[in-house]
Amino acid sequence: MAQGFLVYVENRNGRIRKGSLEALATARRLADALGRTVDAVIVGDDAAAAQAARFGAHRLFRVAPADVFDARDGVVELLAGLVRQESPAWVVASATAAGKDCLPALAARFERSVIQDATEVAAEGGELLIKRPIYAGKAFEVVKPAGALAFLTLRPNVFPAAEAPAAATVVDHAAAVDPARVRTRVAEVRETAGGKVELTEAAIVVSGGRGIKAAEHYPLIEQLAAAFGGAAGASRAVVDAGWVAHHHQVGQTGKTVSPTLYVAVGISGAIQHLAGMSSSKYIVAINKDPDAPIFKVADYGIVGDLFQVVPLLIEAVRKLKA
């Protein structure tokens, strides 16, 4: 059998990351085009394995949870063992915090760099052509892996996750990870309160800019985001002013988001902000300045005072969804 894909499926407390399902489905689409197979690996119980098995792998290695897999080094040990055992041609993970961290550590062991944060992958002439943003999306680089082994991560929320016609064969895999090789220890994990939708995974993102004028108005952005069932973001101006924590920042030095809908409220549209959100499918801008650059990328623009428009919009969205 020709060498194929090995996909790392990230499981957080029984919840499989959406990006991992996207990675599985993408690997399957490419494998079908290339006449290759998809192996996948998950650390988790039978229920998690059964869920992941539906999304495109031919064979799913299930590894029983153990303390060593809480830290990156343990996962890297596990993956390195499987790469040696199965000799895949392509090792794939979602470009989540863990994926972007595990794959370089793994690649280093095979003297390779990672093709990080791909937004398009095509199979052409028996090879992969991979597109990834550079300059935070101001341009794209199309690369072709060189050599027999490539490592790549896929940007979450960009690739479709579809179930495959048949479930994978689940294979129990006993990974022997030497605890001494786990150099970094995870002491504590603090989830952000309230089970809010993660910015980079949200289908709808509502961000507020300096136009909101003060910290006490940021809840307006959160309420609009909640009405849409999305996540709340911010421009750097808002973060630098201390109105909201930095992990909400969207842009070149913040998060890159590509939701179906991005709503920019009181944001001028500086080049560094656009870099983080211009690949969104639909963009709505609400700004009182008709010449604000944000209108150049917006599909729908409202020129107006956000303090008048946003409360009306919250009400209208709630009503429609009710």
Binding site: A107, E111, R112, S113, V114, I115, L129, I130, K131, I134, G137, K138, A139, F140, E141, V142, V143, K144, P145, A146, G147, A150, F151, S278, S279, I283, K296, V297, D299
Partner: peptide, 15 residues
């Protein structure tokens, strides 16, 4: 250069 070859650069599609 071990891991990839740059085939081309592209600008983002105009909105």
């Amino acid at each position: 250069q071990r891991s990839w070859e740059v085939v081309r650069l592209e600008m983002p599609p105009a909105r």
